[in-house]
Design a protein around this nucleic acid. Structure first.
Lengths: 153, 153
DNA sequence: TTAAGTGCAAAAGCTTTGCGGGTAG
DNA sequence: CTACCCGCAAAGCTTTTGCACTTAA
């Protein structure tokens, strides 16, 4: 994330916090900065590792609680994937994911045709759509290589 | 799932098992039948509940292991969602999901425009795509109703 | 001042692992 | 017969909860 977008997101965080009567603490600010700096859709634990280097003695609990709040505030979101740990996404613009089912890593992509997708009429299901996400599952180059090495053993 | 499709999936399971040298046990057969019968993208625990009624004394472990195998065999798949428990999907035809972020339930949908989507060129990322999934996140009718009731209290 | 936030410890929930006995092929 | 599979118990990992202390406003 470039510096301008980063600063803007932090400003938005401060604005929303005041608006919603949330307190601006060091922990919250550093946790937000940490997620924004990590670009690979980190888990709570990944964020904790980074935060722990900056606030000695910070509690895991605080990271979990804060990430959940940032998600509620719409400043970050939870990524969709087939695994079992919750992972967060800092991009809130329209984009899509490649997800490697072998190493569980995400790759962000943008694609005209995918972007052109229109949310279909879901009135038949009585469902209010807030977001459309496209996910491409497969295997990344690195994992395919190691699979080949494994086979040729 | 209609009876014909169900029988076909079970036959496929038996064929693949023999082909891959896996043993056909009562547990595996009943676990497969259970997932196929549950249409709401069950978690391992949900499958276990149903299986436990049919094989007294079956171990949770067995259900976890078997679901993982059925997934490897391509007979079922893991659903993508923002939560933390793994959930399975028995439909292997092309379809998409509505996912209610309030009650964590899936609704299967088919839509012409979504079906018409072409997997974009991902060669630039050195990534082999095996599947394209579209997910619509939002809130189902029931949850919107209870939210309204909550507000008017 | 004081209610919201934090850290700590413990619990809870989901899943995996190791192992001895059981069973399909 | 024997390699694979199952049940059991325990561990492992991620996340949540309860509570007393701290701190932003």
């Amino acid at each position: 994330m470039d510096e301008a977008a980063r600063q803007e997101r932090i400003a938005e965080f401060e604005r929303l916090s005041r608006e919603q009567g949330r307190r601006l603490t060091v922990q919250r600010r550093v946790i937000l900065e940490a997620v924004l700096d990590l670009d690979n859709h980190p888990s709570a634990d990944g964020v904790f590792d980074r935060v722990a280097g900056r606030i000695p003695g910070v509690a895991r609990t605080t990271v979990y609680r804060t990430l959940d709040e940032l998600n509620s505030m719409g400043l970050i979101s939870k990524a969709c994937h087939p695994g079992r740990v919750v992972r967060y996404d800092t991009r809130i613009d329209h984009h899509h994911h490649l997800f490697c089912t072998s190493c569980n890593e995400f790759i962000d992509i943008t694609d005209e045709r995918l972007d052109a997708l229109v949310i279909p009429d879901t009135s038949g299901w009585d469902f209010e759509v807030s977001e459309l996400r496209v996910q491409l599952l497969g295997t990344c180059g690195r994992c395919r290589q190691s699979e080949r090495k494994e086979e040729s053993k």
